[in-house]
Design a protein around this nucleic acid. Sequence first.
DNA 1: AGAGAAAATTCATTCGGATGAATCTGACAT
DNA 2: ATGTCAGATTCATCCGAATGAATTTTCTCT
Lengths: 238, 238
Amino acid sequence: MTRENWTIIRDKLSDDIRSGRLSAGDQLPTETQLAVRFEIGRHSVRRALEALARDGKISIEQGRGTFVADAPRLTYQIGKRTRLRRNLIPQGVAVTSRLVSAARVVAPDEVTKALLLNPGAKVTESQRITLANDLPVAVGRVYHCAERFPDFAERRDVLGSTTETYRSFGINDYVRQHTSIFSRAAKSEEAKTLKQHPDVPVLVVTAIDATPDGTPISNSRVIWSAARVNFTMEHSDG
Amino acid sequence: MTRENWTIIRDKLSDDIRSGRLSAGDQLPTETQLAVRFEIGRHSVRRALEALARDGKISIEQGRGTFVADAPRLTYQIGKRTRLRRNLIPQGVAVTSRLVSAARVVAPDEVTKALLLNPGAKVTESQRITLANDLPVAVGRVYHCAERFPDFAERRDVLGSTTETYRSFGINDYVRQHTSIFSRAAKSEEAKTLKQHPDVPVLVVTAIDATPDGTPISNSRVIWSAARVNFTMEHSDG
DNA sequence: AGAGAAAATTCATTCGGATGAATCTGACAT
DNA sequence: ATGTCAGATTCATCCGAATGAATTTTCTCT
């Protein structure tokens, strides 16, 4: 009985949310109140709340309170024709993305390999943050060969779309060549950027886009909030 | 200085592992010793260790101690020709899988939809656990239409390979039709089955396999230990 | 009213301490 | 050698308490 006490309250709250007894946006009782009601220590309450936050079921905000998450999980389709905006918009989600920084740097090893560049080649690194309904869902870095796409980040920022930007460089089509996904704990700065609880893991999605003839044109590494996204893949065509 | 004290020891240990000062299999000092050495409370030490365990960098074992993880992350390639064994073996990993249970049940809603069955149709549910070098990495349920594949689980267990089993049913080829991936916290029983720390999240991979002409033949839902796996996808052919 | 300061709320982090559970070690008897 | 059991070690869980930080609410003064 003494063991795994905190799972009781976690499961109770989880049930309340699923069944609708607690609905999206509702504020939960304070930690102290929950501790009293369930007759357990506040630390066990915190443990339970942390577990729920990791699943994205609730959102814990310091100084304000704890709330039932109101944003459902986004579905992001990965395939040959992976297009961030087009894939998220159909879900009735307002997707925006913002340029955080742009720089010209010597390509890191992985980028050199991914883009088939010579060691020491320069690339442009643009860092963007993606929001769905004003809530950050992903933050990522994209690398382009600096010689071929000298001002990619700036143009992308003006044109507002990756597809358009490629077109302005004379590339009318591009396809996803390779994708890799893994999960890890969020670094504290990532958690801050994504406005998520420090214990929510992130999904790291590394990808290579290429022209239809197979020439790689971009290498990206996007950090997704694991609680807010769901990836799908169709293997027929893409 | 008082804030986020525990991240200091987390980062220190993480560095020690990455740099090789601590190597695979090494036992870490006990919680108490670490607390003394870093001049912080044991609870902060635990918090740091939990964070490292979530990333799969260390493995915490009650009554034994805490050890640097010795199993590297597996890479599992998802594509049109997704075959568990063939995709993992090239990495020098001894992959085995074991039937945990087999049953004949009324198809759950999602399965009905995935396999295009009539409501109330029966399916076989086989639960298998997959081990890589004797370490569990995944546990999953696979559903097959009971009419067409009445004894799938049993045959699969005898023949030792999914491909062979399908062949015995007259299916010489099959392809991955659809895959979806998301992350969530592990349920306590899943954590136990996968022999992982309760705080390590899992990746839920739902898939539909089909014959080349597009007829769905199986629906699976596999729970992967998020710390031990890494998914990749090639979008050219599969 | 309106602006700004003070107070109250609420979560964040940390510490110390206690008990339980799993595992290993070593003494002991067979 | 082998098996058993007591004790030590180590992590797991829990509680209570204090201080700090972020936010909201209330009050005060102009």
